[in-house]
């Protein structure tokens, strides 16, 4: 149903730490790998060995530069569905194929209903929906619904593939509807923010901003230089070091 469900208590989503993401694409490829055999399979690749390979991915890693010159920053930026609380990608869907689950807020596509009109992808500000032109249906991040509830997996493995694989642990998964959850606390502590809040989609996923630099541009308390003890000329250093020996 493309009417949004009433806001639920549980809002599952991701928190992505831009301070430590090294842009390794591990999350993107592991996502592709998991989902290639999962509930949205296949993530079709067109001309995979051709001139213009073009595949379906649910997670893509961009790199931005912010600011100029040496004080600027390079920021790696993974982008996937934010499982918004009020997303138009659901309401624009003419068939009901695009829906938001009442019980946990996950936004999914029911491929059996989808007519492939692409409108939902137009309505998503974040580019989180990718059309599988071979299958003729819209596909998107499932928040690994086939992992997080999958009792065939060990409990520790019931997290999204992209979270499990991230080598620097820049990705966190949890219930952002619960203010006491680890992810909510993290968001509170680090000033997690919404992408394009002006769209009013109220994304569930949050991004943690890069921490301030700790170099000459910011370091007030840092030592400036060491006080010289040794006189460099004329063998002035000879003898000094042994004073330091404690034995």
């Amino acid at each position: 149903m493309t009417s949004l469900p009433p806001p639920g208590a549980k809002r599952l989503g991701l928190v992505i730490d831009l301070d430590i993401c090294v842009g390794c694409h591990a999350c993107a490829v592991n996502c592709k790998e998991w989902n290639s055999g999962g509930m949205a399979a296949p993530l079709t690749d067109l001309q995979p060995y051709g001139v213009e390979p073009d595949g379906v991915w649910f997670n893509r890693v961009h790199t931005f530069e912010a600011g100029e010159g040496a004080t600027g920053r390079t920021v790696h930026f993974p982008r996937s569905c934010l499982h918004c609380a009020e997303p138009d990608c659901v309401t624009v869907c003419p068939t009901g194929a695009s829906y938001k689950r009442a019980e946990d807020g996950i936004v999914l596509v029911n491929e059996d209903l989808c007519i492939g009109c692409k409108l939902c992808s137009w309505a998503c500000p974040y580019g989180a929906r990718e059309f599988d032109s071979d299958a003729g249906v819209m596909k998107k991040c499932t928040l690994c619904a086939d992992r997080i509830y999958n009792e065939a997996l060990e409990e520790v493995d019931r997290v999204p593939a992209c979270v499990a694989t991230c080598p620097v642990s820049a990705r966190h998964f949890g219930d952002l509807g619960d203010p006491q959850s680890e992810v909510s606390l993290l968001v509170a502590a680090r000033g997690g923010y919404d992408l394009m809040p002006e769209m009013g989609y109220k994304p569930t996923n949050k991004y943690l901003p890069p921490r301030p630099r700790r170099d000459q541009t910011t370091c007030g308390a840092a030592p400036v230089a060491l006080a010289p003890v040794v006189v460099a000329e004329a063998d002035g250093f000879l003898g000094w070091i042994d004073r330091l020996l404690s034995r």
Partner: peptide
């Protein structure tokens, strides 16, 4: 606003 990185400068 798309990246939320505006406070660091032009993106």
């Amino acid at each position: 606003s798309a990246t939320g990185l505006g406070s660091l400068g032009k993106v």
